[in-house]
Write a protein that binds this DNA or RNA. Sequence first.
DNA 1: GCCGTTTTCGGCCCGACTGTTTTCAGTCG
Length: 574
Amino acid sequence: MPIHNADIAAIFEEIADLLEIQGANPFRVRAYRNAARTVGEFGRDLAALLARGQALPKIPGIGPDLARKIHEIASTGKSSFLERLHKELPETITELLHIPGLGPKKVKALYDQLKVDSLADLRAAAEAGRIRELPGFGEKTERHILEALAVRTDTARRFKRPVAAQYAEALAAALRAVPGVTRVEIAGSYRRCRETVGDIDLLVTAPDSAPVMARFTGYDEVAEVLSQGDTRASVVLRCGLQVDLRVVPESSYGAALAYFTGSKAHNITLRKRAQARGLKLNEYGVFRGETSIAGATEESVYAALGLPWIPPELREDRGEVEWAERGPLPTLITRADLRGDLHCHTKASDGANTLREMAEAARSRGLEYLAITEHSQRLRMVHGLDSARLLKQMDEIDRLNAELSGIVLFKGIEVDILEDGRLDLPDEVLGRLDLVIGAVHSQFDLPPAKQTARLLKAMDHPHFTILAHPTTRELDKRPPLEADWLRIIRHARERGCYLELDSQPDRLDLLDTWCRVAKEEGVLVAINSDAHSVHDFDDLVWGIGQARRGWLTREDVLNTRPLAELRPMLARTM
DNA sequence: GCCGTTTTCGGCCCGACTGTTTTCAGTCG
């Protein structure tokens, strides 16, 4: 079984959990957690790299000991250190940490004094009223544990950003209407454009927090108030989304916005930097001793630390601070940079609108060109096109192009990549198109070597232009294909192909970390809507967010090119 | 466990809220 970076990360997380319950040095615990995060996000498959006999790259936070453990996990899939920990503490005990209100100390107390080591034990102990009798626990804690166990199936739920947006924007609007409120910002992972968000962080500036708190906790979608103080409160909405509110004075707005935008790892890097300069950074500002020297704007906070303002999408502690210090950060792509869209469907396959309707909708959204790319014959369920129907549609497109102004249609196809890497339509037909985007819609679980070979072979095809939704992942539904993505990206460069970033909120595929690798490897990304109706062109903004998280600029994206420049780029030269 | 134009040892981000206490530890973000 191949070992992924995520598997190594999961082992480090579990070690951190167990050490924490044992009361180990908190900084040692943190070292494992940091390592889990860095390894989990690392752009190269470490196990594959080691298997090829290459040296482990220098990764910040990975010293000699953790490097040794990575080697062990990569080659055996296991960690002997973790197995030793399992002899000291039951494997199931880490489940308890996922109950809100239970941290390592309380879990340790439950285990030592009541022999509780699983969620089932926890429920039994709580129902028997034994938890309230422990020192440091009480009736409320016991009740909260029972409540958390009852809703546990929902607690891990994350919301897709467009879904969270609907709830968050409405609540933000309600708070903006409170007298005295000057600003309401949605911060957190939402502002960083994460594809999903676990909760919503709202930041409000107002001279008096009381009316804001009252409006917030009294908002009619609130199902439960989790906590409430003078400056901070948390609620759960009926839909299950948790919202945290913080009210700060105007003078702290920038510092608070930075603080609540995160990420946590980015904040820690900033604070260390402040400390190294004899300063202190918190949500109220940047301080020298007792004196505030910045805080009203985010720009002032970064400037006080000797940095330019860093876009929220980059704040993941993936090197953005060091980069900002050395020179200018990339000017990230915006929606306005897109000149066209290279992937959409019409009624001919599984779309909802006609060719003309799609063309006019694209034009009305400021696009100059649009590629029509129906499914191919193999996908019978969605009326995939065979050669005859595709040729007929090409004639239609010619006629429409002669008639329409302000938008140019490209003749394309979203051709199925078959299991062996062949394409689902004959060469002579594909050769008559302006572009061929290829996609995997079946056989998602081939062994990684076969899956890789399949994609490489597809790109070898002389007419292949763009690999659509490359990893085929769907949020909450299907994991990414297992394949050697670095090799695939490099193959795309060698073959003169491009990778798509599909903007559908369920897909957002290519993933942000691979966007960054594509950029580093010199492969252009096409940010497409994959529209199945005229409304879906609006989804391009989600793709833009993902691209920004992947550090992409206008230059890194294929469909920012004007029409005349793009045409020759679609023709394969190798 | 990591890391170093402050350091190879001694540091490691910071504050609010809750529940349990009766001045604070634990948890969370």
